[in-house]
Design a protein around this nucleic acid. Structure first.
Length: 264
DNA sequence: GTTGAGCGTT
């Protein structure tokens, strides 16, 4: 029950969180797991994503069960090249609820403290990033669009997203799987557990989205509502199963973005 | 079909 499923933070009570910076936007939790799991028991991996687009934001959180293992992972993996980029691994400084944590360990004393720090200030999302004058919307290209003709480019962007969503085959993957080894693999057997766990967690809704978003009900009202345009929008999604069969991220947020759902 | 300082979700 408390797995890397999409049911929120698992059991963060006695875990040690590592912040992994500078990963590629295509790197998934699956990619990180074998690396980090070599140094200890990885309890959870989470890759924050853009709310709207679902894209990776370029960093990840890896949670260890034991502090010494986390520490070792920092020493060994910080600066390591992953998918062509030198990642930075360090202990997280803030908890999932913006709590300061020490050495990656959440200091959350009482649930009262936790509730306080997040219940007030009803930010829409956490995109304000704690008011630390966070400049970015994560990319200059999107900044550009946001400033100028966002409305004009919106549909274009959507198409991009959708296509890149269902594509999922990049040189990165070739490289990674051609490599097939990590530096000291003293417990490579565990490399499978992550996928297994996630399959387990997603058993209700398998990663391979052979989805059935909404069966066109034989109702007259709906069929009348169906325009060819909408139909076209749905089709590419229905078959958007990646070549890898499963492309699981930490929590793949619904493959169908909200806008798509709204379209139906 | 991108981008690149940074701290997180059901």
């Amino acid at each position: 029950m408390s797995h890397f499923g999409r049911s929120g933070p698992p059991d963060i009570k006695d875990t040690y969180s590592l912040l992994v910076l500078n990963i590629t936007f295509r790197t998934t939790a699956d990619d990180l797991f074998p690396l980090f799991d070599k140094y200890g028991k990885v309890v959870d991996i989470f890759i924050p994503r853009d709310r709207k687009t679902g894209d990776s934001r370029g960093f990840a959180f890896v949670r260890y069960k034991y502090a010494d293992e986390a520490q070792r992972a920092v020493e060994r993996l910080d600066g390591r090249n992953v998918d062509g980029r030198d990642i930075m691994v360090q202990f997280a400084k803030y908890g999932p609820n913006a709590e300061p944590i020490q050495k990656g360990r959440i200091v959350e004393a009482s649930p009262k403290t936790r509730g306080r720090s997040r219940s007030r200030s009803p930010r829409r999302y956490r995109n304000d990033y704690r008011g630390r004058s966070y400049k970015r919307s994560r990319s200059r290209s999107r900044d550009r669009y946001d400033r100028y003709d966002r409305d004009r480019y919106r549909s274009r962007e959507r198409n991009y997203r959708r296509r890149s969503r269902s594509r999922s085959l990049t040189p990165d993957y070739d490289r990674r799987y051609g490599r097939g080894r990590y530096d000291d693999d003293y417990q490579r057997s565990r490399s499978r557990s992550f996928e297994s766990v996630k399959f387990y967690a997603g058993s209700a809704s398998p990663p391979r989205r052979s989805l059935s978003p909404r069966r066109p009900s034989p109702r007259r009202s709906e069929s009348a509502d169906e325009s060819p345009v909408k139909r076209r929008e749905r089709l590419p999604l229905s078959r958007s199963v990646s070549p890898r069969g499963h492309r699981l991220d930490s929590r793949s947020p619904s493959p169908y973005s909200d806008e798509v759902l709204c379209n139906l």
